[in-house]
């Protein structure tokens, strides 16, 4: 089965795959996804910046009802899913959370993963980024 990423410019590398944002040379603000100008200061230049893979759940919720298009449900149909913000230190990133409800809490250590979001009409599996519980949160942070 062929796969593709939901948007190429969100990612860098393959194994391990990382999220890539941008960082301002002037005020050090980190943004995601990357953009060409700094939302905070007019002085700096923005350059690609690879984000940490580990963080803590900053807030979370559940998407209980199927969203209207342009949302694209997975191959098996819509199932409720978690979303949240993950605190990566220099930036908080909004993401799908592959965390069971019983484990979900603000402050939960999580790490980057990918998950199938939907399939293209030709059967190509489309992957997006997500965070899942981190069994070893202290390693190589």
């Amino acid at each position: 089965m062929t796969t593709r990423l939901v948007a190429e410019d969100l990612f860098e590398g393959v194994d391990p795959m990382r999220l890539v944002g941008a960082r301002c040379s002037g005020c050090h603000t980190v943004v995601f996804p990357r953009q060409d100008s700094c939302p905070r200061c007019a002085d700096g230049a923005m350059s690609a910046h690879v984000l940490p893979v580990r963080g803590l759940v900053w807030s979370w919720t559940l998407q209980a009802f199927p969203p209207k298009p342009p949302y694209r449900p997975p191959a098996g149909g819509f199932q409720p899913y978690h979303v949240g913000y993950v605190d990566l230190g220099e930036v908080l990133v909004e993401a799908r959370l592959e965390v069971p409800r019983r484990e979900m809490r603000i402050g939960l250590p999580v790490r980057l993963t990918t998950m199938p979001a939907y399939h293209d009409e030709d059967g190509t599996e489309v992957l997006t980024f997500a965070f899942r519980p981190d069994p070893s949160p202290e390693e190589d942070r």
Binding site: V6, P33, T61, L62, P67, Y85, R96, I106, A117, Y118
Partner: peptide, 25 residues
Amino acid sequence: GDWYAESGMMLTTQFFALKTQRYLH
């Protein structure tokens, strides 16, 4: 980008819930 809505994160209801969840905490 389209990816944001396609992957199911572009809902006002989610935002209100995420902001409220953090606020209560």
